[in-house]
Design a protein around this nucleic acid. Structure first.
Lengths: 219, 219
DNA sequence: CTAAGATGTTAGAATAATCTAACAAAATAT
DNA sequence: ATATTTTGTTAGATTATTCTAACATCTTAG
């Protein structure tokens, strides 16, 4: 059995994993707002359960079993987010905090029903893919808006680090998944972008914003 | 802040309270499947938070604050049950176990939304009243079917001690809230009742069943 | 290359919730 | 009314999760 606490560590490990699947103790500590010694001891515990590879002073890595379990928690989280948004009328900026709690419900029937009522969605309200029942995740590699060039027209496909503040910022500007953005110019000194979309007047987006907007170029 | 564990103790205290609002340590211990010494120490803790009146060797009683907090947990539980049954298609025999977990979600917005989507229901799927936002519960005193007499026709209004097994038993016989039951005869040796309803052939219900069916006589 | 700073571990303690064993009080049955 | 049973408490231990303080290792800037 995996405790609620352990589920949270697995989820954070999964979300922080870089290309090589590695996470530092320090990063994980900051992500979870839990002190490093506590993280170290939990990693030893999870290693004992064959969920994490742990060696002193080495980066952390999930085992295959760990990845599967983490994905299943993320599945519950994203299905919940989608249900809250699609079936209950919550805004995409509201769903994360509630899903953070609902995801720990232990009832396959509950999440199966949500999945069914939603028509087996592939993406959550932030454009993130929903892992399947076996914990398999079909990752689509989007581009960051900040990596695009002047003159390109792109479609917003997902948002990263979906803090409520950031999403409210997007709401205020009516930027949502599917919005087609044209890059008019890029300020070289701060990498901010002047863009236009939806027949609106030109708008400037800071680099911080552009890094969090994931887009597709082939519109 | 009231922990998930404390919420469970409060809920159990509320549900077990007799006419005088009293509960014994032993009853509570059995209800929660937690040993008596643990219950005693939790009662001291809750007494420290002014949620329970506790004196050695005396029955336990919730304070007004304790009753309010308990009612609010029960409110979340019953709203969840109703949502699961009405909006998600779960049977009344399935909703309790899921609601037992969802009830601990800390988000007023979540339960407000459920309440709204349900159209502010007054009763849960088992006929139990849903406390209001202030923890006030409008209790309706129904009769047990077992207290009714031969010849009476009554309407099933609620069920008590809603174990999944009992509810499946009722499902098999298509007895639900609203079913009108006529009492044909009562076996004096075991208090079982021969009843008829819905133009079906006569059916015999054991005393155990009749005690758990709450009915209204004025149909 | 080495000193400073960042990162990670060990040791020991704290809190919450639970348990068993032993004892104490209350209720019950003859 | 007293012995037995049931109920309740105390004491002490256990497990899970967290912390701080101190120490160890690794990385990096001169």
């Amino acid at each position: 059995m995996i405790s609620l606490t352990e589920e949270n560590y697995l989820k954070a490990l999964f979300n922080l994993a870089n290309h090589a699947g590695e996470v530092n103790v320090n990063e994980l500590s900051k992500q979870l707002d839990i002190k490093m010694p506590t993280v170290t001891s939990m990693m030893k515990k999870l290693a004992g359960k064959k969920l994490v590879y742990y060696e002193s002073y080495k980066p952390l890595r999930l085992t295959e079993k760990g990845k599967r379990e983490a994905s299943l928690v993320i599945r519950k989280h994203r299905l919940t987010e989608m249900f809250l948004a699609e079936k209950m009328g919550f805004g995409w900026e509201e769903v994360h905090d509630i899903a953070e709690q609902v995801e720990h419900v232990q009832s396959a029937a509950f999440f199966d029903k949500i999945n069914e009522l939603l028509g087996f969605p592939k993406l959550d309200p932030h454009g993130a893919p929903i892992p399947d029942k076996n914990g398999k995740l079909a990752w689509v590699a989007y581009d960051k808006l900040s990596d695009c060039h002047v003159g390109e027209t792109v479609r917003v496909s997902a948002v990263v680090h979906t803090s409520s503040e950031f999403l409210k910022f997007l709401n205020n500007r009516e930027i949502k998944l599917g919005t087609r953005i044209k890059i008019k110019s890029i300020e070289s000194f701060d990498s901010s972008m002047v863009i236009s979309y939806d027949n609106r007047p030109a708008e400037t987006l800071s680099h911080a914003v552009c890094e969090r907007l994931l887009v597709e170029k082939k519109v």
